[in-house]
Design a protein around this nucleic acid. Structure first.
Lengths: 206, 206
DNA sequence: ACCTGAACACCGTTCAAGT
DNA sequence: ACCTGAACACCGTTCAAGT
């Protein structure tokens, strides 16, 4: 009845864009390539989305939700130290499985509107919970940031081929995770309220 | 005498490109923008460089060398723990000072030829030296990777605005650095030769 | 109501022609 | 020997015209 029924859907567009991202990185997600995948011409995409930037942002949010689910899936709730370890491994595994998606999440500049902030807060909630049980509520945030920074830093350098020094990369990751979990289990983290300067021996910008 | 003396130089091109990178990220480093800065038309740039990709790669190498120098400048050689701390702060400070340059270094895909590998090895050499004195030669590489991953991960998340949970970000960084340095000073790192699986409680992909 | 071709302003890159 | 305008194949995006 309607003069021209939709020949594609928002969802098909997102799936096509995600596939292109996985295959060739964000640069490969062109409007023409996406349009070709869903069987349409590039201008038609603008009936479904506002701009290429909005599409790329949607891919960020999609990936963040997926990472959060992957992390959440391995938390058992019994031993918080074991959970932190498992979440660390799950995070790195996701990065290795979807390197271009991973790079796109952490490589995009903060310019755009950021509902991603709320999304990423939800994504790290399980980790925050385990850290709470591990080091107490006062130090939970600092502990979660310590683990998050390490794991993301490791994954990021790994994907950037930044470990040019050779050696067993899997072992290095495991070693780092053990060091962190041990330190947290021992309650060794500096108090979140008074991390101070450690005045002796070369401070922040000395 | 010569029919047409050079109207720009390789160095002026690199400086213009670096300025554009700082101001607007890698996307802003267009051949036309660079050409305009050095007072020339875009096609003329190809007398000085092979492609835009080569220019972007040169910017990566330039930045890596600069990070290495910034790290090297704060190492004193007396107390290795203090040196590791100082280098961590210097690294984060550099990232905050040049966020777009930093993102460009760690965001670029490994595809291109990588003399950057040798360069980055040189850049972390002083950190490796301090770790050697701190935990011994067997564990030095693992320790350096632990510190590098944490510091890069923290800086990266900070620039990506990934710390949406509020709180004192400076304190969180200091807290993490203290935790790591304390763990290394105590010799708490798992042995690099036998980091094993810690079989109990949720291994790598459980 | 959705899709399309044509158009516009940009890209990176090549190349024959200028000096 | 270097620089240039014109050209080519691409971008993202807009819009009047089709159905």
């Amino acid at each position: 009845m309607s003069p021209a029924p939709a020949r594609t859907t928002d969802d098909a567009i997102l799936v096509a864009a995600r596939d292109l991202l996985d295959e060739g990185g964000a640069d490969a997600v062109t409007m023409q390539a996406v349009a070709a995948r869903v069987g349409v011409r590039a201008p038609s995409l603008y009936k479904h989305l506002a701009s290429r930037g909005a599409l790329l942002q949607a891919l960020v949010e999609d990936a963040i939700a997926e990472i959060g689910a992957a992390i959440d899936a391995v938390a058992r709730g019994a031993d918080p130290g074991a959970d932190v370890r498992a979440m660390a491994y799950a995070f790195r595994a996701w990065a290795r499985r979807s390197p271009n998606r991973y790079r796109h999440v952490f490589g995009s500049r903060p310019g755009a509107a950021r509902p991603a902030a709320g999304l990423s807060a939800a994504a790290v909630a399980p980790l925050l919970g385990s850290c709470d049980r591990l080091v107490g509520p006062d130090r939970a945030l600092a502990a979660a940031r310590l683990v998050t920074a390490y794991v993301h830093g490791f994954a990021s350098m790994e994907l950037a081929d930044g470990f040019g020094l050779g050696g067993d990369v899997d072992a290095a990751f495991a070693s780092g995770v053990e060091t962190l979990v041990s330190a947290l289990e021992r309650g060794d983290a500096v108090d979140a309220e008074e991390p101070a300067a450690r005045s002796s021996g070369g401070g922040p910008d000395a």
